[in-house]
């Protein structure tokens, strides 16, 4: 089996989002970075599939030079090697991202063989475009199933389960396939210390694709107005219990 996971570096925004002066980006000077929880589950699933059946796992990102940290995080969880499409930090729209990822996948497959599975997050944490996986799947002419909470390989096919109103919808598609996943698919492991050390020595291939003009073009970001909550104190410690009960009664839930 050969399995690929596509991830994106995003800031951890904490309790309040602060924008840069030009309102074109989040001010990340005081923030840490991560990959989306959805994508972390994609990485974990890729590692489990290779652990169970043998083969080769790769992680791919399009992002600034610092995104190598997220590639190392994925390799610390057990991914074998990484491909880094380096950008100057400006945003790429979903269409351009998908085109660059597709090209990188085709190039890697020409050299090392076809990926049986390519994992994406259902949506990226920051831009939430809900599209890169489907676009890559179409460009590779492979079946695509989205929003998965369970993935089981059954011979030359994969059984895919999606959470829907009232239960789960099941799809069975032949390999090779493109799957987009959601958090809850699995519980990602914590990277071990030896895992982290090994990750530092695993190979990262970097290239610098050219950014096309976006057709979905960011004009500015806006932090939505608060919901007008006023934070009324009901007291401190256990002594506040009667006031809480009174509030619950007024709210009509008691």
């Amino acid at each position: 089996m050969r399995v690929l996971a596509c991830i994106k570096r995003v800031p951890i925004t904490g309790g309040r989002i602060v924008l840069t002066d030009d309102s074109l980006a989040i001010d990340t000077r005081h923030l840490g970075f991560t990959m989306s929880p959805h994508e972390e589950c994609g990485v974990e699933e890729a590692v489990r599939i290779i652990e169970a059946g043998g083969g080769d796992s790769v992680v791919l990102t399009l992002g600034p030079p610092e995104a190598v940290e997220q590639l190392r995080d994925a390799m610390a969880l057990g991914i074998d090697r990484a491909i880094h499409l380096q950008t100057d930090g400006r945003e790429w729209d979903g269409e351009a991202t998908a085109a660059a990822l597709t090209e990188a996948i085709k190039a890697d497959e020409a050299a090392s063989g076809r990926f049986d599975l390519v994992f994406f997050g259902n949506e990226s944490a920051d831009s939430g475009g809900f599209q890169v996986g489907a676009r890559v799947a179409y460009a590779l002419a492979r079946p695509c199933v989205t929003g998965l909470k369970r993935v089981t390989i059954e011979g030359a096919s994969v059984r895919c389960e999606q959470e829907v109103e009232g239960g789960r919808d099941v799809y069975v598609v032949p390999l090779p396939a493109v799957l987009t996943v959601k958090e809850g698919l699995n519980l990602p492991r914590y990277p071990s210390v030896p895992g982290r050390m090994r990750a530092g020595r695993k190979p990262v291939t970097a290239t610098n694709p050219v950014r096309p003009e976006p057709r979905l073009e960011l004009v500015r970001l806006v932090v939505p107005a608060g919901q007008g909550r006023r934070a009324e104190s009901l007291g401190t410690g256990a002594a506040a219990a009667p006031a809480v009960v009174e509030m619950l009664r007024k709210a009509g839930v008691l």
Binding site: T13, A125, E217, L218, V222
Partner: peptide, 11 residues
């Protein structure tokens, strides 16, 4: 964006 924590104006 960000599940509704941020809005984007775009062309």
């Amino acid at each position: 964006r960000w599940g509704g924590s941020l809005l984007e104006e775009a062309r």
